[in-house]
């Protein structure tokens, strides 16, 4: 009969199922990534070419916002301070990685109550950055702060860490290192669980111990943990905003600003609303981040191909 002769008509979807399925699964993620990340990146760049107070009509000014930023750089003004502080943050914040590693090594043992110690060390990461900021603000307080009580014990001080433009950025970074170190510690603790005991055994037979053991046997196995710790620390340093906002509001006289805070100040704070200028700062910050993102993506890609 004819019914037998006619080949079963496969639908288009059916035929292309294999190719479509991954895109279908990716669609929600892609959609949100486009709407919340990719499109705003281009919008920011576009906005940075305008002068706009967020209310009236936007006026096209070409690259004048960038020109103003350049002059701020030349004049050693706010933009220069922010960029310089960002660099200090980037470098000093990395101290969280070795610090986290050594705490992790120290805690990676089995004695009574080790879980309690581990959670105590992890504690600063759990509490909010706002609380960390407040605690350190009081710690640094020039009249009744613990730091000055401590210094006066040795006949030093008083030191107004958050009120002195020479120390303020370092003071805030120390506050930021407290939770960041805990974060890196947790990453390394999980990493240490995966260290192969046979390799350690083999190393021991070959006479490795102490630093040599750490450097040649342990650390290479902790590479994935180091990589993640590096990524989160760099990102944490670049988006350092909350601590500055709580501890100093960018002060005294603007000397603890970083790019993220300066952008907020210019575009969104009480005296701000230069949207175009804020967007220009955001673009600069994005370009700096892009260097790191590109590096991370490249090394991840290399890793994948290596396997």
């Amino acid at each position: 009969m004819s019914a037998v002769d006619v080949p079963e008509q496969e639908s288009w979807f059916h035929r292309n199922q294999q190719r479509i399925a991954p895109w279908l699964f990716l669609a929600p993620g892609l959609l949100f990534f486009m709407v919340y990340v990719i499109i705003p990146v281009f919008q920011s760049f576009n906005l940075s070419l305008y002068e706009w107070d967020g209310l009236g009509a936007a006026e096209y000014v070409g690259f004048r916002n960038y020109e103003d930023l350049y002059w701020e750089w030349v004049d050693r003004d706010a933009f220069y301070t922010s960029l310089k502080n960002n660099l200090i943050w980037l470098i000093l914040y990395l101290a969280a990685i070795p610090a986290g590693l050594f705490i992790a090594l120290f805690l990676n043992q089995t004695v009574a109550g080790i879980r309690l110690y581990k959670s105590l060390f992890f504690f600063p990461f759990v509490i909010s950055q706002v609380v960390v900021g407040l605690v350190f603000t009081w710690f640094y307080d020039p009249t009744f702060g613990l730091l000055n009580e401590f210094l006066s014990f040795f006949g030093l001080g008083p030191l107004n860490v958050l009120g002195d433009e020479r120390f303020v950025t370092y003071g805030i970074i120390v506050a930021g290192l407290w939770p960041q170190t805990a974060y890196c510690m947790i990453l390394y603790l999980t990493g240490l669980n995966a260290v192969d005991p046979e390799q350690i055994e083999a190393g021991r037979l070959d006479g490795a111990k102490g630093w040599r053991m750490l450097w040649h046997i342990i650390l290479p196995q902790l590479r994935p943990a180091t990589f993640i710790a590096f990524v989160v620390t760099i990102i944490g340093a670049l988006r350092s905003f909350d601590l500055i906002s709580i501890m100093t509001q960018g002060g005294p006289f603007g000397s603890s600003r970083v790019l993220a805070y300066y952008m907020f100040e210019v575009a969104l704070s009480e005296y701000g609303f230069r949207m175009g200028y804020g967007a220009a700062i955001a673009v600069i910050l994005f370009l700096i981040m892009l260097c790191f993102i590109a590096y991370f993506l490249w090394s991840m890609y290399r890793e994948e191909r290596g396997h």
Partner: peptide, 11 residues
């Protein structure tokens, strides 16, 4: 200059 204001007022 005569020390009219309290110290550390910027904090």
């Amino acid at each position: 200059d005569m020390g009219a204001f309290i110290d550390n007022h910027q904090t």
